[in-house]
Nucleic acid binder design. Structure first.
Lengths: 226, 226
DNA sequence: AGTTATATTTACTGATGAGTCAGACTAGCT
DNA sequence: AGCTAGTCTGACTCATCAGTAAATATAACT
């Protein structure tokens, strides 16, 4: 019973079948998340039933529960994707060697890409209050860290002179407001491409924040850095 | 029984009692709206039950239905208040004789005042989708007019030179995003006063939008006018 | 073929919450 | 006092979903 000749012809490699299964499962889970995120964004979390999500996918409701244990977990996953994008942006900014303003723009661009992106369109703006208490605590804490980091980038910019004098907290709320509001109006079918929007918003933010004398476009590396 | 001495002492004037009743009714209706708006804003429309609203007011649920015929009507009223503020701002801007940028700032300031204001804190960001189809159509149409007017102010600013070259549509989404996101984070108990926030945001917007060579603060009336 | 693990569905349960109804309470009027 | 209109409440109903259980299909492997 140990030799498996047919397995060699049917299944290319020993663990391969299991891998394919897992891979399919992963894909399906992602499809569920994508559809749900889009629906939550468009019609709101509370106005979207699990049956709605299921019918878009052409399956029945209980199937969804194979991939997410509850509707709230689905929402939690959406929040995580959004925050992953934020943190990815922060990491990029951290890696970049430049002024605070440059870092800020790199970060926000990456964050916006996430919002527009493939799996994106995640309900950044959706009910934190619909989460379970534990999930909510987690999301709130993580968000707080992201906000604090945003504030930190702006404070850095103020101190290195790339950003004009301002209250970093308020300025970060200003910038995050612009970005977080995007899902409220952006539609794939709209007239503007994500690139146009990001470009335009980045320009507006830069000129809004830049120190009066500083160059508007940080195309040339300027100061501070070694 | 025809002479009514007690009426003279109790009720000052013939129609006065009825007036007082109406006045009380109006006040109560407003109280309901204020509490509901605040709750909708904090926890979301769907996460707020009519019982919640009632218990904050110390009354029972059916009482609310004396003042609003449905939960959706309550939401509709919230939207109306927010849009009233927007339109009031537009009227102010229209009355002001100055550059497009000045008008824009006047408008947005007034709009923000509404958001912070007494009856304010209205769920600008809340489900349009929870409204009845008719109400939704109404709100969407009115919002569209407000957006268009915002866009118009920016286009005016671009053409009169007070605002740098930009796509008015995207710039208006930028500005409205900043403002509409405020209810998502502002709390009366927070560290910043509405005045600080408005001042700060106005400054950031002005420097973001102003034409490169134009004065950053339109403190002295400069050009065009007269 | 048969056996097992996984995937999916139809048909339910149970909770929540909007909205109603019939009656109680109050205040103004005569 | 007694009548009337306006205001409020306790106790319902009824619809909508989130989530589950049990049964059925599919595929993977021997």
């Amino acid at each position: 019973m140990s030799d498996t000749p047919s397995a060699a012809t049917r299944a290319p490699a020993p663990g391969r079948a299991a891998f394919d299964r897992d891979e399919q499962r992963r894909r399906k889970r992602e499809a569920v998340l994508r559809v749900a995120a889009s629906a939550f964004n468009r019609r709101g979390f509370a106005n979207t039933s699990m049956d709605d999500v299921a019918s878009v996918l052409g399956v029945s409701k209980p199937t969804l529960y194979q991939y997410f244990k509850s509707k709230q977990e689905l929402l939690y996953a959406c929040h995580q994707v959004a925050m992953d994008n934020g943190e990815a942006g922060l990491a990029l900014a951290d890696a970049h060697d430049g002024t605070g303003l440059e870092k800020l723009v790199i970060y926000l661009r990456r964050y916006m890409e996430g919002i527009f992106g493939d799996l994106g369109n995640c309900p950044v703006l959706t009910d934190v209050d619909s989460l379970t208490p534990e999930d909510r605590a987690d999301v709130v804490a993580r968000r707080k860290r992201i906000s604090a980091a945003t504030k930190g980038l702006i404070a850095l910019g103020v101190s290195d002179g790339s950003i004009g004098p301002c209250d970093p907290k308020l300025a970060s709320l200003f910038a995050l407001g612009v970005v977080n509001w995007i899902p409220a109006w952006y539609r794939d079918s709209g007239p503007n491409t994500p690139e146009e929007i990001m470009e335009s918003f980045a320009t507006l933010l830069i000129s809004g924040l830049a120190a009066p004398s500083a160059p508007k476009r940080p195309s040339a590396k300027t100061k501070k850095k070694a």
